[in-house]
Design a protein around this nucleic acid. Structure first.
Length: 688
DNA sequence: TCAATCCGTATC
DNA sequence: ATACGGATTGAC
C-alpha cells in the first residue's frame, strides 16, 4: 500500500550507497523565475529517493543557494553538466502530476508566446492538496453506467461536414474542424459536443472540452450526464476551490476518467490517449489567460491535438477570423449547418430604423432611446413567451469615426487604431505614433471627425414600466441568471450574460448596436457579430414566430451578416480586409510595454538580431493614461517615466521566428540584469 | 602579505 | 535573485 502521501526527504546522514541507483540523474524543471534559465537542470538522485523521484513528481531543489520548487522531467544515466551534481532535497509527493504530454505542450505553448515554461506549468498543474492526495480512492471505477450509446439520431446529421468530423474521431484520425453552430436556442450545442466526446470514448480515447465560463460548464455537464453518463467525466473550473480542484485533477491524472470539461486551464488537463479537444465559442476573450505569457485556449488545443494526433474542434455560432484563416489555409475542415437546417432554425432578423433619417444624423442619441419599432417587437413577442433585450454594458470607449458615414478611422501609415494621444493633444496612431491631420474619409470623402467618446447606454429598466404586469428579469455582471422558463417575461441582459430560455425566446431586441460595432477595438465588428449571434441563437426559429430586431447602423457588415445569418462569409471578408491592412490574424503581432529605456533596449536588440523579412517595428509611443487614473501630463511636459508601447508586426509565416526573437530578448535582459520592466504579449486580445 | 570588498558570471 | 571566484584595493 502507498504511504499516506508525505514529503520524502533525502536522508541527511548519507549512509554509504549500498545499492547503486539505476538512473542516478534527474532532469528537473526549476521555478527560477529567470528567463535565461528556462531549461532543465540536472540533479543527483540520492538512493533513498530513487523510487520516489519519478518523472512528473514535484520536488524541492537547491538552486542558486535557495530552495525552489520543481518537477522531475526525466531520469538519466549520466549528466553532461560537467560538474558535481547537487542532490534533490526532497520529493514533495510521489504523485506524478506532470505527464510527458503536458510537459511537451507547456514547452510548445511557452515557445509560441515567448514565455517561460514554468509559468505555463504553474497554470497547467494545480497546487497540491496533501489531504486530498491521501484520500482513499473513490469506488467509482467499475460502477459507471455504460454510455447511452448512439440510439438517438446524432446532432451532426444537420451539418455539412458533420459526418466526416464524427468519422475522424471514431477512426482516430487527427484533424482540425471549424464548426459554425446552427442557432439552437442554446439547447443543442452541449449535446453536440458531448456526442463527440462519446464518440472518442467509444474509440477508446479521451476528450477535453473547454468553454468560456462556469455557466457553460454546467450546461455542458448536463448534456454529458445524458450522453455519457455521470461519472464518465469531470468538470474542472477555477472557482472550485483548491481541494476540489486538485481532487478532479487527480482523478484525471490517475486515469480514472477520460473526459474533462471545464474552463481555460482545463485545456491542460492530463487526459491520456487524447482523441478529441474542443473549444466552444473560441471568439470569447475569456479563453485568453490573463497571467503571463497570456495564451489562448484555441492555440493551446490546436497544438495539443497535433501532438496527440487528436481531432480539434473549434465551435461557435459566429465564426472567428482565426478559424476562417485555418479553413482558408486548408488546415481545418469547415463544418456548418446544412441549408435546410439553417432555414428551419434561424429566427427572422431585421434592423431597426433602416430608413429613419433622424437616426442617421445622430445615431448615438437615437440608439440610446428605444425605437418605437422595438417596443412593437417586444409587445408582439410577449404574447408568445419570454423576450430578450440585449443592452451593451456602459462605458465602452468608441473609436474615432467619420462624422458623416461613421466609417472607422485607422492609421493611414500602419492600419493601427487612432486615439487622442493625451488630453488636449491631437489624434495619433496608438501603434506608430503618426499624427492625424487633414482627415479625409476613405469611404465617403467627408472631412469631419466624430470626437472619440465614451459610449453611454442607459439601463433598460424603464422598459418594464412600459409593459405593466410583465415580470422583468435582469441578468448582468455578477448577478447572471442561467436560464428562464417558457412563460412570458422581459429578460434584460448584457452581452454574454443572456439566460437560455427553456422553449426559446419569442423575440429578441439588440439595443445600442453602435456601441458594439463602433468600439475602439480593431476587432469590434467581429466581436459585435459574435455577441449578436449568441443572443439571436437563443430565439425560436422564424417558422415558430421567432424574431430578432437589431438596433444598429444598418450599413455595417456585421449587421448585414446577422440578417443573412451568414457568419462564415462575414469572417472570410473580415479576414481579407485584415490581410490587406496587415492586421491579425493575417499578421502576427506582439506588443512590448514598459518603461521607455527598457523598451528601447528591446527594440535595439531586435534590430541587432535581425528581424524577419517583412517585419515592421511600430513606435514606441506613449501609452494612453488609463481611464481610471487621468494622469495627464500638465503643460504638455513629457513625463519621461510614463510607459510606452512598441508594436512588432510580421507576416504569419514568421510568427515562430518573432516569438523566438522576443524570447531571446527577455533572456538577454534577464542575464544582463537590465532594470525596468517590459511586458511582452503575442497576439494580444483585444486589438487596440 | 593578507583580508575586505567589488564586479562579473553561473546557477545542475 | 544569490553565491561564488577572481581581481582589486587598502592597511599592516
Amino acid at each position: 500500500m502507498t504511504e499516506p502521501a508525505a514529503t520524502v526527504k533525502a536522508a541527511a546522514n548519507a549512509r554509504t550507497a549500498a545499492i547503486p541507483v539505476a538512473l542516478p540523474v534527474a532532469a528537473v524543471r526549476v521555478d527560477t523565475g529567470l528567463a535565461h534559465l528556462d531549461r532543465p537542470f540536472d540533479y543527483d538522485v540520492p538512493p533513498d529517493l530513487a523510487e520516489a523521484a519519478q518523472p512528473g513528481v514535484r520536488v524541492k531543489v537547491r538552486f542558486a543557494g535557495r530552495d525552489r520548487d520543481g518537477f522531475v522531467v526525466d531520469r538519466l544515466a549520466s549528466s553532461d553538466a560537467g560538474r558535481a551534481l547537487t542532490p534533490i532535497r526532497a520529493v514533495v509527493s510521489p504523485e506524478r502530476v506532470l505527464s510527458p504530454e503536458v510537459l511537451a505542450l507547456a514547452e510548445a505553448v511557452a515557445a509560441r508566446y515567448a514565455g517561460q515554461t514554468f509559468d505555463i506549468l504553474r497554470q497547467a498543474v494545480p497546487p497540491r492538496h496533501a489531504r486530498v492526495e491521501a484520500e482513499p480512492p473513490t469506488a467509482t471505477s467499475g460502477a459507471v453506467p455504460p454510455a447511452a450509446s448512439s440510439d438517438s439520431a446524432s446532432c451532426w446529421v444537420d451539418y455539412e461536414g458533420g459526418a466526416e468530423l464524427v468519422d475522424d474521431i471514431a477512426s482516430g484520425r487527427g484533424s482540425f474542424a471549424s464548426v459554425t453552430l446552427r442557432p439552437d436556442q442554446g439547447a443543442q450545442w452541449p449535446v453536440a459536443l458531448a456526442e463527440l466526446a462519446g464518440t472518442a470514448l467509444e474509440a477508446g480515447r479521451g476528450a477535453v472540452l473547454v468553454v468560456p465560463d462556469h455557466r457553460d460548464v454546467s450546461r455542458l455537464g448536463l448534456a454529458c450526464d445524458q450522453v455519457l453518463g455521470a461519472g464518465r467525466y469531470v468538470a474542472m473550473t477555477a472557482d472550485l476551490g483548491p481541494a476540489k480542484r486538485y481532487r478532479q485533477f487527480l482523478a484525471v491524472s490517475r486515469g480514472q476518467v477520460g473526459v474533462v470539461i471545464g474552463t481555460r486551464s482545463a485545456a491542460f488537463a492530463p487526459v491520456a490517449n487524447l482523441g478529441l479537444v474542443a473549444c466552444y465559442d473560441d471568439g470569447d476573450d475569456l479563453h485568453v489567460e490573463p497571467r503571463a505569457p497570456g495564451w489562448h485556449v484555441r492555440e493551446v488545443l490546436l497544438r495539443r491535438a497535433q501532438q496527440a494526433g487528436a481531432v480539434a474542434v473549434l465551435a461557435g455560432y459566429a465564426t472567428s477570423t482565426e478559424r476562417a484563416l485555418l479553413v482558408e489555409g486548408g488546415w481545418a475542415r469547415e463544418v456548418r449547418p446544412s441549408r435546410t437546417a439553417l432555414r428551419e432554425s434561424a429566427p427572422r432578423v431585421t434592423i431597426a430604423g433602416a430608413s429613419d433619417r433622424q437616426r442617421e444624423r445622430d445615431p448615438l442619441a437615437a440608439s440610446s432611446r428605444v425605437p418605437r419599432e422595438a417596443m412593437q417587437v417586444i409587445r408582439d413577442g410577449l404574447a408568445d413567451g419570454p423576450v430578450l433585450v440585449q443592452v451593451p454594458r456602459q462605458g465602452y470607449a468608441l473609436a474615432v469615426a467619420c462624422a458623416d458615414c461613421h466609417n472607422r478611422v485607422v492609421c493611414p501609415a500602419c492600419g493601427g487604431p487612432i486615439a487622442q494621444a493625451t488630453a488636449g493633444h491631437g489624434l495619433a496612431c496608438r501603434w506608430c505614433g503618426t499624427g492625424l491631420s487633414d482627415f479625409a474619409c476613405s469611404a465617403c470623402g467627408g472631412t469631419r471627425l466624430r470626437a472619440p467618446m465614451i459610449g453611454s447606454s442607459r439601463t433598460a429598466e424603464e422598459l418594464g414600466r412600459a409593459f405593466p404586469g410583465v415580470p422583468v428579469r435582469t441578468s448582468a455582471g455578477d448577478k447572471v441568471v442561467p436560464r428562464v422558463g417558457a412563460e412570458r417575461a422581459l429578460v434584460i441582459a448584457t452581452p454574454g450574460g443572456e439566460p437560455v430560455a427553456d422553449k426559446g425566446y419569442a423575440a429578441a431586441v439588440l439595443l445600442d448596436g453602435l456601441l458594439l460595432v463602433g468600439r475602439a477595438d480593431l476587432r469590434a465588428e467581429e466581436e459585435a457579430l459574435r455577441r449578436w449571434m449568441a443572443a439571436a441563437a437563443l430565439v425560436r426559429p422564424a417558422g415558430a414566430g421567432g424574431r430578432v430586431l437589431l438596433v444598429a447602423p444598418p450599413g455595417s457588415r456585421a449587421a448585414q451578416a446577422l440578417v443573412a445569418w451568414d457568419p462564415v462569409s462575414f469572417a472570410d471578408r473580415e479576414l481579407a480586409e485584415r490581410r490587406s491592412s496587415h492586421l491579425p490574424p493575417a499578421a502576427r503581432l506582439a506588443t512590448i510595454d514598459g518603461d521607455k529605456a527598457a523598451v528601447e533596449a528591446v527594440a535595439n536588440g531586435l534590430d541587432r538580431a535581425g528581424l524577419p523579412a517583412g517585419a515592421e517595428l511600430l513606435g514606441p509611443v506613449a501609452m494612453l493614461a488609463t481611464r481610471s487614473e487621468p494622469a495627464a501630463p500638465p503643460e504638455g511636459e513629457l513625463p519621461g517615466d510614463l510607459d510606452v508601447r512598441l508594436v512588432v508586426r510580421v507576416p504569419p509565416r514568421a510568427g515562430a521566428e518573432l516569438a523566438s526573437l522576443l524570447r531571446q530578448q527577455q533572456a538577454r535582459r534577464s542575464a544582463a540584469k537590465e532594470d525596468g520592466t517590459v511586458r511582452i504579449r503575442l497576439d494580444p486580445v483585444p486589438l487596440a
